[in-house]
Design a protein around this nucleic acid. Sequence first.
DNA 1: AACATTATGTGTACGGCGTCCACATCTGGT
DNA 2: ACCAGATGTGGACGCCGTACACATAATGTT
Lengths: 217, 217
Amino acid sequence: MPERSGKPTRDTYRHGNLHQALLEAGTELARTGGPDAISLREVTRQAGVAPNAAYRHFPNRDALVQAVSLHAMAELALAMEEDLAALPPTDDPTRTARARFRAVGTGYLRFARTEPGLFRTAFYVPDDMTQAQAAASTGQGGMTPFELLCAALDGLVTCGLMSPERRPGAEFLVWSCVHGLAVLLIDGPLRGLPDEVVDPAVHDLIDLIEKGLRPDA
Amino acid sequence: MPERSGKPTRDTYRHGNLHQALLEAGTELARTGGPDAISLREVTRQAGVAPNAAYRHFPNRDALVQAVSLHAMAELALAMEEDLAALPPTDDPTRTARARFRAVGTGYLRFARTEPGLFRTAFYVPDDMTQAQAAASTGQGGMTPFELLCAALDGLVTCGLMSPERRPGAEFLVWSCVHGLAVLLIDGPLRGLPDEVVDPAVHDLIDLIEKGLRPDA
DNA sequence: AACATTATGTGTACGGCGTCCACATCTGGT
DNA sequence: ACCAGATGTGGACGCCGTACACATAATGTT
């Protein structure tokens, strides 16, 4: 008998699907400890494989973290889509546009608070960069979080809830506001606040943004 | 002659002011590489001292990073005070309140972009937490960044630029918006954008916030 | 069917890190 | 003059990422 203890033991010399296994182990580590918790030695350990085996699938640690990051970004998109899908159907297009805009924000913040480790990993960008809205980080609908936000903003413009001349670049401003609250809630000084405090704050923040975007008239 | 090479050599057994020296070395490391770049072995190396000497002044690495973080927060407050001080004097209190509010935001973002490493270090909060607006992280005026923001908001209320019933908790919303832009600009997908793009975005963001805070009337 | 090629996993080793322990040295109070 | 506490040193341990040489399995060619 070649082995007897532990569970991730394997009898074949080849693992079979190591790339995927490393990714999943990395995701679990990131879930509880953020990007810094992802270690090559730990993921290979969990896969029941020698540390160096990882180098057949990722050039270095950073590449693995990057891959997990993309996966986390996709989960963020999924969370946002969930909030969008949970919306009750409406006849009023204006009401719908507003609701969809809000859902984009609440989904974002819900994911940040539910999965802070993955959220932080999603925004881990090391040195190369510019893969933010790259593929593979989309939800079921094939849209990235950023694209979901843009679509929601376009909806606001269509319904007159936002002036068209304010539209260009607005996605970055809105994103900033929501992202900032997320960061302060999970990493920063607002950490660990109970839902009774946070939920109204989320509501108020989206109110503020919405009001800030509205046409002056 | 006991030593001859390198510069941080010292002839006395005692260093004299190691605590301070470690703090300064740590600050320099954080300035260029953020909190992760702070290493006990490196700061002691720069101080010309054995690695373990650090343990006479900080219980562990995290305590050092924490100390640097406080220092960085104070520098942030200083940057905000600079923008406030640079304001031209005005008779109109409303105009002043508005300008001071904007200065708080621009100072915050200017520091984030000028000193991204220190900015990230300032918001490094490990496990214990709740020292956010603790002492020692204040500027010359003795106020923390958070308190500077609160004061600016109070000014807005006084001048009727903001409805009093919206005031409670508003500091967190506004902080979120500005902080979010800072994070996206230095770490996130908006990284490395030129001033010609960023400056208008900063302006627009503060516009949006201001508008969102205004009374409905 | 036999062999060469490529893909994948292993073993060993190096240097860097934080940290623990025992020990050396200096300084201030008695 | 001495002792106690504060401060710095040296060595060791176990992590980590990663480079190099090697072993083994899968695949394609003849």
